[in-house]
């Protein structure tokens, strides 16, 4: 039987970590982590986690198709992800009502991505990069584009923050108060499409959930205050990307794998401790206040 070294320690890891391509990886990863933190809270509150997963897959034929016709991969990816996001946003209705349709489009898009890839001769590395991400391949040009996207995203979120929150939490009341709920839904999906375009290049289509959704879910478990949850979520994404790159240099592992592992571990630990404190807290919460006496089971 062949033995497999699961990890190999590389003693030149500091050299690797301070090299030029690693600098791009760190900067790119940082930008994407911040962008994911800004949008992730809303992805959860708006129940669009599955839609974001699907959009990442919809980007796949864009990326492999771009190679086929000779345009930048990021551009093809962006056109498909944002285009798909606009369609989903314009359809309105709750994400939960569209699961089957979204899943079907997801499957079709992935198949199409594979087909485009088979037509092109040199794109098999593109396929792997899009499916699993490749932080180490981020170029200077991409960094500039990422930075512009992050600034645009931050400006947009600052502008629409309260109406978007209102529309996400109480869409009926928000609509009655004159908030343009449908328009905001389309704008939000376009922003989500942008973030996904960036994040796919870091962790890939298949692992995107772990960077865009999982840290936000962790943040919401830790605090119910929207802006704090966004900050916590961004912090978890940042730590995941930075530590992910460091460990991958140290132990010669694929960065995406380590990034995703850290984000998921943090989520799991927080989830476990929340459950534990929920059980332990039952008796404490049961103090004889009027509110808890009224509904002890839900307290």
């Amino acid at each position: 039987m062949r033995t497999v070294d699961l990890v190999t320690y590389q003693d030149n890891w500091w050299e690797i970590l301070t090299s030029d391509f690693m600098r791009n990886a760190l900067l790119g990863g940082t930008i994407v982590a911040l962008a994911a933190g800004l949008i992730g809270y809303f992805v959860i509150v708006r129940n669009t986690a599955f839609a974001s997963h699907a959009l990442a897959h919809i980007g796949l034929p864009g990326a492999t198709g771009a190679v086929l016709i000779g345009i930048p991969v990021s551009l093809g990816l962006g056109i498909f992800a944002v285009g798909g996001a606009l369609v989903i946003g314009a359809l309105g209705k709750k994400a939960a009502d569209r699961e089957v349709a979204t899943g079907t489009v997801l499957a079709m898009a992935t198949g199409l991505g594979l087909y485009f890839n088979s037509l092109a001769t040199k794109s098999s590395s593109t396929m792997t990069n899009v499916l699993f991400g490749n932080l180490l391949a981020i170029t200077n040009d991409q960094l500039v584009v990422f930075a512009i996207m992050l600034v645009a995203l931050a400006a947009a979120v600052a502008l629409i923050y309260r109406p978007l929150l209102f529309a996400s939490v109480d869409s009926e009341v928000a609509e009655a108060r004159g908030v343009p709920v449908r328009t905001l839904s389309v704008v939000f999906m376009a922003l989500l499409g942008l973030v996904i375009t960036m994040a796919v290049q870091v962790v890939g289509t298949l692992l995107l959930f772990a960077l865009v959704v999982t840290p936000a879910a962790t943040g919401i478990q830790l605090t119910p205050r929207p802006r704090r949850a966004m900050a916590v979520s961004a912090a978890i994404s940042l730590v995941s990307v930075w530590a992910g790159l460091a460990f991958s240099a140290m132990l010669n592992l694929p960065p995406s794998f380590v990034v995703v592992t850290i984000a998921c571990l943090v989520w799991f630990v927080v989830w476990l401790s929340a459950r534990a404190s929920h059980r332990a807290g039952g008796a404490i919460v049961g103090a004889p206040t009027r509110a808890t006496a009224e509904h002890p089971v839900h307290a």
């Binding site: 600052a158 502008l159 629409i160 923050y161 309260r162 109406p163 929150l165 209102f166 939490v169 109480d170 009341v173 928000a174 108060r177 004159g178 908030v179 119910p224 205050r225 929207p226």
Partner: peptide, 14 residues
Amino acid sequence: DAVLLGLTGSRWAF
């Protein structure tokens, strides 16, 4: 925060 949205939820810009 949900109650606060009744006051600020339709205001644009941060």
